[in-house]
């Protein structure tokens, strides 16, 4: 039963996410809210693994979430669910290709879809900020604002931003490099306090 629901949820994700792997992220947050199958923190970890392994991020995420929820069968169903809507639509579109391209109503819909997709991903980013950079648990106990923000994490984020946006030789490096480096920093400075 849970497998059927999983398949259905990922069919919806495959149908409504436009703009690549990151675009599936807001739907996965929504799925976490509505089902409780996994937490936001788990999602952030899955995203990191998905970015560091071969294959499209969206498929990697679907497989990972599917496996976490329903084992191997879940992984297969979630992946199928994600690719079936796009595949069907491409097969239909390809058969009427010339009519579709440059159609002003299609362009008009995308004029609205693209900023919406960007907005959804930005909101997902804000949710990860809460998990990655803030100590909401500690703050709830002490009530001190200095305890709310994790200085170590903010410092790492600042360094990573500069390395991925400003410093020329590191800008073009693959995300896997930064993810691996962050893992090492996390272990060395015991980011989880564990």
């Amino acid at each position: 039963m849970i497998l059927l629901q999983l398949f259905w949820e990922f069919l919806k994700i495959g149908l409504f996410s436009v703009g690549g792997g990151m675009a599936t992220l807001p739907f996965l947050y929504d799925l976490s809210d509505s089902t409780g199958w996994f937490t936001y923190a788990q999602l952030a970890d899955m995203l990191a693994v998905s970015e560091s392994t071969p294959g499209p991020v969206g498929i990697n995420m679907a497989t990972y979430v599917g496996y976490t929820v329903g084992g191997f069968g879940g992984a297969v169903l979630a992946t199928l669910g994600t690719i079936i809507p796009g595949t069907v639509i491409v097969l239909i579109i390809a058969s009427m290709l010339d009519k579709f391209r440059g159609n002003k109503y299609v362009d008009a819909a995308f004029y609205g879809l693209r900023p919406a997709s960007t907005g959804l991903i930005a909101a997902a980013g804000v949710s990860v900020v809460g998990i990655a950079l803030l100590n909401t648990g500690l703050y709830a106990v002490t009530g001190k604002l200095t305890d709310l923000i994790s200085i170590k994490a903010v410092a790492l984020a600042a360094v990573l931003w500069v390395l991925t946006n400003v410093v020329k030789p590191t800008k073009k490096l693959h995300p896997v490099v930064f993810i691996a480096a962050s893992a090492v920093v996390g272990i060395v400075f015991s980011f989880a306090g564990a």
Partner: peptide
Amino acid sequence: KNAFAGIRVCVVVLI
């Protein structure tokens, strides 16, 4: 756990 706490920071920057 520590590794993923570090990685999550990286995820924020990637997003």
